[in-house]
């Protein structure tokens, strides 16, 4: 089940918003398997659109989004969701967790909608990731009793529980204080790198920029390659 890191090839990608406004235009982009990439840019430049398109949550108008051998751009929504489920882990800006569930339940949330055969593995991995992130032994406490930093670590454990080859993160440190942000930045990159996962994070946090293999800037929906970080 553990996915292997996957190379990303994007070509001729355009994403159009409401009223035909062009949100994103990527001629060509290749990201090597197992690298940690941080995307940055002014707000409204199309960073999140880019990330959500890579995740298959936005259907592009034209172009290809090739993860390994699979071009997810032409796939119908259920197939894109299935691809996301099997290959990707997602960390959001705000520590979005199900407050009334416990940390292990949140981390293993995918077990609720995955095939019976995968459930045990997801739960085991979720527990292991929580332990790695220093959240072992928290028992069945409701998640809303955790601090913001802890919740975001639960979210990271959740992203890793499926054993994905790809980790996508949308401003993962934005709502954390400095200490927690630093810790999360370190954890994310370390966890991705030691397991050979491809990490793509949208972030304006220098702590993440420092640790990235590569920085990509987005301005007005277009990619500008920055100097390697």
């Amino acid at each position: 089940m553990t996915g292997h890191a996957q190379k990303l090839e994007v070509s001729s990608l355009t994403v159009t918003g409401d009223g035909g406004r062009r949100l994103l235009c990527v001629d060509s982009l290749t990201i090597a398997a197992g690298s940690a990439v941080v995307v940055r840019g002014p707000s409204g430049a199309g960073k999140s659109t880019f990330l959500y398109a890579l995740a298959g949550m936005i259907a592009p108008e034209t172009g290809q989004i090739r993860w390994g051998e699979t071009d997810i751009a032409p796939l119908p929504e259920p197939a894109r969701a299935a691809f996301r489920r099997r290959n990707m882990g997602f960390v959001f800006q705000e520590h979005l967790v199900f407050e009334e569930l416990s940390a292990p339940e949140n981390a293993a949330i995918a077990a609720l909608y995955s095939g019976r055969a995968d459930r045990g593995r997801i739960r085991d991995r979720a527990a292991a990731e929580l332990a790695r992130l220093g959240l072992d032994g928290v028992g069945t406490r409701r998640s809303d009793t955790f601090s913001g930093g802890e919740r975001q670590r639960i979210a990271v454990a959740r992203a890793l529980a499926g054993g994905p080859g790809i980790i996508l993160a949308d401003e993962p440190t934005a709502s954390l204080d400095r200490d927690n942000a630093d810790r999360l930045a370190r954890d994310l990159v370390t966890l991705a790198r030691t397991e050979g996962r491809t990490l793509i994070a949208v972030s304006h946090d220098p702590a993440l920029h420092e640790r990235a293999d590569r920085l990509i800037d987005i301005v007005d929906g277009r990619l500008l390659e920055a100097a390697d970080g």
């Binding site: 949550m57 259920p78 969701a81 299935a82 996301r84 489920r85 959001f92 949330i109 995918a110 909608y113």
Partner: peptide, 12 residues
């Protein structure tokens, strides 16, 4: 929406 973003099927 969070569930959907995490890859849960629409059907779920």
């Amino acid at each position: 929406a969070l569930l959907r973003a995490l890859g849960a099927p629409r059907r779920f």
